[in-house]
């Protein structure tokens, strides 16, 4: 096997996450709220509920509903993002909900809804992952019964290395091939349940071997406990 040659632009080790910061209780009106950041990526989440689900025909007498809304603030990205939902944000909202739902005891709350609102204030890649980390904290902060926490990180293949917590620069990594710049980064956002280490979100775009994906999942599982540590410490810091 040839030695790996790619180096991360910010000098991080391959399994090293950016500095993480977290805080709860930032939206006073909400039942629970939190902020989570990976370096320059900052997401906030607010949880309302369980509350009555209206109109009534949407209600499910067997279990509650979890709704997630992910959005980028217009000024969170370099070129202004037009406010309001897009196809991208709708899909991320959807997969975020599915990443969180496995841990939530929705059968405790028939006919109700739990709403999770995620707003990215500053984006430097891995926004959906920061959003999921904030949302899991906000859900716990809102006193929602959960089997375990959800942690999320974006794993990337950059050149010939697999790295944790991609930045925008790394996402845009290219190599020169036959005199042409060619995209050489693959983004693999993964959510790992904190205790069972099961995977509740897995997306990939780019180009990978099966081995690469296996390695990525293993790396996500490995760094999950570090993320969970930050979530736990912030939750325990009760004002």
């Amino acid at each position: 096997m040839t030695p790996k040659t790619t180096k991360r632009p910010d000098g991080r080790a391959n399994d090293e996450l950016r500095e993480m910061k977290a805080k709860t209780g930032i939206v006073k009106n909400a039942d629970g709220s939190a902020m989570f950041s990976f370096g320059n990526t900052v997401a906030i989440a607010a949880v309302y509920g369980p509350r009555k689900l209206l109109p009534q025909h949407l209600q499910n007498p067997e279990k509650g509903k979890l709704r997630c809304y992910y959005d980028l603030a217009s000024f969170s990205v370099t070129e202004r993002k037009k406010p309001g939902p897009s196809r991208r944000s709708s899909e991320i909202s959807f997969v975020t909900g599915k990443a969180l739902e496995p841990v939530i005891r929705l059968d405790n709350y028939p006919n109700t809804v739990i709403d999770v609102y995620i707003l990215v204030l500053q984006a430097d890649a891995s926004t959906r992952c920061a959003g999921i980390n904030a949302a899991a904290m906000a859900l716990a902060n809102a006193g929602i019964p959960m089997d375990e926490m959800v942690t999320s990180v974006s794993i990337g293949k950059m050149g010939d290395i697999i790295v944790a917590d991609l930045t925008k620069e790394e996402e845009d990594f290219t190599i020169e091939k036959n005199g042409k710049e060619e995209k050489a980064a693959t983004d693999i956002p993964i959510a790992v349940l904190s205790r069972s280490k099961k995977i509740s979100l897995l997306q990939l775009d780019g180009k990978c071997t099966k081995e690469d994906v296996k390695e990525a999942v293993q790396l996500a599982k490995k760094v999950s406990s570090k993320i969970n540590q930050v979530q736990m410490e912030a939750l325990k810091k009760v004002k």
Binding site: V27, N29, A30, I44, A46, Y48, R51, Y69, D71, S74, P83, D115, Y117, L119
Partner: peptide, 15 residues
């Protein structure tokens, strides 16, 4: 100038 009354900020605001 744009403004958004996001339901994140209050249970009075709607999507």
């Amino acid at each position: 100038v744009g403004a958004e009354l996001s339901p994140l900020a209050s249970d009075r605001f709607e999507m």
